[in-house]
Amino acid sequence: MPTITEYYGISEPVPFVNVEVTADNRLYVDPHAIRLRKSGQPFADLALLCLDTFTQEVTDSILQGTPASLRRGEQILQRFVEPWETRLGMSRRGFHGHGGGDIVGTWIWGVLTDDVEALVRIGVLKQIEDLPLFVDGVDRDITSDITTRIVFDALVKFTAQMLVQYPEFTGGDHQVGTFTKQIWSTDALDWVDVEVTLPVADGKALLLVPTGWARPTLLMSAGRYYGTSVLTFAQLEQAVVGSDGKLIKTPKDRLKKQTGLGRGRNTNLAVTMKAFEKGEDLLAAFKAFVHGRLDKSEPEDKAA
């Protein structure tokens, strides 16, 4: 199946993720990748503003705790629609695979106002990429779908720039179309409908994604957080000083078998709260770890 460059006859390299136009591509828009790679990336600042204002509106509605604010928080989470325009992810495992964006939003809202509300209230959970670490069922597919919807305005503006930069998108028999799409407005701090112009490929609107914004896995995953920050905290908490003055740590494979330290998001949540009570922000430390380990040579934008 043709990639975007093959379909339009564009010479590589290109500044967008070069996916196949007629199939779901197993790459996922990663909000933390956008955050870490924003330097020099077109429209990354707008994407981050969209992400952070959206998350702020949701968390503020929880912190205010009034009936009106709680209704608003749930309502803006229920306005997700399937972001099939990018051709990224796997639709059977995204919003559609979970019953629809409104159902996914309701489910996330329930977790935010119950299981992880404490993290919201103490200010630890404050970015959209934090959700996969603590919310069961929110993995790369749902995270990608949510992120794509929230940063849709930035992706539309990036695509418009690509239409100017690459006349092949409108050359020959290729066409663009005008579509009414929902975007998150950083001015209105709400969802609004706008008319956008997008290329039409294989009869469907095509939304381009900047290089570096999509990956085969999330930089911040529940398993990675558990295996690094969570178990490392448990190791140090249980460590004892040997006769030689050195710390003796319990191996991580043994820690995993202890009650309360088994792999899972419940453990991530419990240990994160425990660490916070002792003055340690495991989530901040994990983000610093991820930033330090980011391999910029990874071929993350190639469709698998």
Score class of each variant (00 low, 15 high):
V14L: 07
V14S: 02
V14C: 07
V14F: 03
V14P: 00
P15L: 09
P15W: 04
P15N: 10
P15T: 09
F16Y: 11
F16C: 08
V17E: 01
V17T: 15
N18V: 04
N18C: 08
N18L: 06
N18W: 03
V19P: 04
V19D: 03
V19I: 15
V19S: 08
E20C: 14
E20W: 05
E20M: 13
E20S: 14
E20P: 01
V21K: 01
V21T: 15
T22K: 13
T22M: 13
T22Y: 08
T22V: 13
A23N: 10
A23S: 14
D24P: 04
N25F: 05
N25Q: 10
N25M: 11
N25K: 11
N25S: 13
R26A: 15
R26P: 03
R26G: 03
R26M: 11
R26N: 12
R26E: 14
L27G: 04
L27A: 11
L27D: 02
L27E: 02
L27Q: 04
Y28W: 15
Y28C: 04
Y28Q: 05
Y28G: 02
V29C: 13
V29M: 15
D30F: 04
D30H: 06
D30V: 01
P31D: 10
P31S: 09
P31G: 11
P31E: 09
P31K: 10
H32D: 00
A33C: 07
A33Y: 00
A33W: 00
A33N: 05
A33M: 09
A33H: 06
I34C: 06
I34V: 15
I34W: 04
I34G: 04
R35M: 10
R35S: 12
L36Y: 05
L36P: 02
L36F: 08
L36H: 05
L36C: 09
R37V: 02
R37E: 08
K38E: 12
K38P: 00
K38S: 14
K38M: 14
K38C: 11
S39P: 00
S39C: 06
S39H: 10
S39I: 13
S39W: 05
S39R: 13
G40Q: 10
G40L: 12
G40H: 09
G40I: 11
Q41G: 08
Q41H: 09
Q41F: 03
Q41D: 14
Q41P: 01
Q41C: 14
Q41R: 12
P42D: 09
F43G: 02
F43I: 02
F43D: 07
F43E: 14
A44S: 13
A44K: 06
A44W: 04
A44R: 06
A44M: 08
A44V: 08
D45L: 11
D45A: 13
D45S: 14
D45T: 14
D45I: 10
L46I: 07
L46M: 10
L46Q: 12
A47Q: 06
A47G: 09
A47V: 07
L48N: 05
L48D: 03
L49F: 00
L49W: 00
L49H: 05
L49N: 08
C50Q: 15
C50K: 00
C50N: 14
C50R: 05
L51V: 03
L51H: 00
L51G: 02
